[in-house]
Structure formats: C-alpha cells, structure tokens
C-alpha cells in the first residue's frame, strides 16, 4: 500500500495529466454525439447571457442592412397575400377549405453567437425551449439554409451550422429535381459541396440548388446556392458539384426556426416501415 502511495506521489504530475486528459476526451466524445446533453456549451445560462449582452451592443451596426432585408421580405409576403390576386372564378365558394393544411410554422430568432472560421461551426440563438424550440428543428433565412438545432436550454438554443462536418442536407437541382446531398468540406465558408449526383444529369454553372423537402427538417424549396463548378473525380461514379452559397454566414442576424407539425408522424411511419422490413 505504501508503495502505491509512493508511486502516486512520485508520478502525480503524469497521472494527473492522464486523468484530466481523459475527462477532456470524454467531453469531446460526448460532444460528437448528435444530441449533446452536456452543460459545456454556449446554450447554458452564463455564457448565453454574456453573448446576449455582446450582441445587444453589436446589433446597432447592422440596423440599416436588416431594414433593407425586412423591407424585401415584406414585399415578397405582400405579393403572396390574397389582395394581390385577381379573383377570376366567382362561382367557386370555399367553406372550411381542407385542401391546404398548415405543415410548417416559423419562429423568428436572433443569432447571438456565430463562427465561420473553425472546422466545425455552431450558432447560438436567443430563444429556447420556453419559446417552443426543440432539437432537430431547421434554421433558415430568406436567403438559405443555416443549420439544425442541436441543443436547447430554457432561453437559448445551440445550432449545428451548415458549416459543420456532421451536417448533411438533402437537396435537389431546381430545374430537373435531381437529388443530392449538400455538405461542407472546404476551408472557404462561402462554398459547399453537393455529392451523389449521377453523371447523366444535365448541369450548368449558375443552376439553383434548393432543399428537397424529403427530410422532415426543412420544407421543400428553401434556397441553398448556385452551381459554380462540377467534375467527376477519378474512380468515382458520381458528380461532385461546387456550390456558391446565397447566404453570407459571416453576418447572420435574424433567422427563422422551422417547426414541422407532421414531423413526428413522418418519422414514426418511416421508422416502423423499416423495422417491419427486418421482420419479413
């Protein structure tokens, strides 16, 4: 026993280093899970409040640009209201129209922390579970897909940015509906890559890429970017497409949190269908 104590006393520096390093690695591995239930992140109360204060000061510098953006969005919305359409068919009468059922609701939130220069980037929003945000909801702006909610606390939520190694977005080419997967594997934060497009698909630089709506997270038709270049790598049977993002991730301010009302239903159905297959 005394030998053991002597050994620990003699090597305490190395043993303590190993112990603390082990704690650090456990945190790192837990963090890599899709759902982190760990308090060391910017969604906790102290860091969240500090970032909120910081953003409150910094926000004044963006007022002009935000106003322009809002005016543009208002213009688009007014264009979609009933007042801007001429009713040509006077005979049809709608009573409790059940053709359209609301599937997505949108909640506006402010970005209070953001980064673009790391290998894995996260955002923090100023709204959390009290406002109805849950993990797995999508984050968009009028100009594109931003990310997916990873963690929520009562007042804040932490978002996995599109600029993250784990983010995969199901996307399609607007003009011919061909599917692919959008991911970020470049050092440049203005560019992403789209993979898994078969070689026979007709592509042109400048084509628009939008979300496919196949996942339960994003609605169909949210903008992502335009094709800047494409090529087939040696030994691969799919085209790799380079995409210029519409959204500049470096100056995000206000974003929308997307809630899919039928998301759980879709997920449940897909899950049961898969398990049934195994039993057959």
């Amino acid at each position: 026993m005394r030998n053991l104590f002597n050994f620990i006393a003699k090597n305490h520096f190395f043993l303590l280093f190993i112990a603390l390093q082990a704690v650090a690695f456990i945190m790192l591995i837990q963090n890599n899970h899709y759902h982190r239930s760990f308090w060391i992140n910017s969604a906790n109360y102290v860091t969240g409040q500090l970032y909120l204060k910081y953003t409150n000061i910094g926000e004044y510098f963006f007022l002009k640009r935000i106003n322009e953006q809002l005016a543009e969005e208002n213009q688009n919305l007014i264009n979609q209201t009933a007042y801007s359409f001429l009713k040509t068919d006077q005979d049809v009468f709608h009573f409790q129209d059940s053709v359209y059922r609301r599937q997505f609701t949108y909640l506006s939130a402010r970005v209070i922390n953001n980064s673009v220069n790391r290998r894995n980037n996260y955002l923090t929003l100023n709204k959390g579970s009290l406002h109805g945000i849950e993990p797995d909801m999508g984050i968009i702006t009028s100009q594109g897909v931003i990310g997916i909610v990873k963690d929520v606390s009562p007042h804040f939520s932490s978002v996995l940015s599109l600029l993250h190694i784990d983010t995969r977005i199901s996307a399609k080419i607007l003009k011919n509906d061909h599917l692919g997967t959008v991911l970020w594997d470049k050092p440049n934060y203005r560019k992403v890559t789209m993979k898994h497009i078969p070689p026979h698909v007709d592509l042109q630089p400048g084509d628009t890429i939008i979300t496919s709506g196949y996942s339960k997270i994003f609605p169909e038709g949210i903008l992502i970017g335009t094709i800047s270049d494409y090529n087939i790598k040696k030994g691969e049977s799919f085209i790799t497409v380079d995409i210029d993002l519409f959204e500049d991730f470096n100056n995000l301010n206000y974003v929308y949190v997307v809630k899919n009302i039928f998301g759980e239903e879709q997920e449940y159905l897909e899950l049961t269908a898969r398990t049934k297959l195994i039993y057959w």
Partner: peptide, 24 residues
C-alpha cells in the same frame, strides 16, 4: 499548473461550443 490549464480550457470551451477540445 495542470488544474489551471484545465479550468482555462473548460472556460474557453464553454464559449466556443467545443467541449473538451481546448481543454485537451
């Protein structure tokens, strides 16, 4: 020295959303 390094790393990690990375 090690304990201070650990505290410093965890503090930075909390703000950077990179649990464990800076600590390590």
């Amino acid at each position: 020295l090690l304990i201070l390094a650990f505290i410093l790393g965890v503090t930075i990690d909390m703000f950077c959303d990179t649990a464990g990375l800076h600590t390590s």
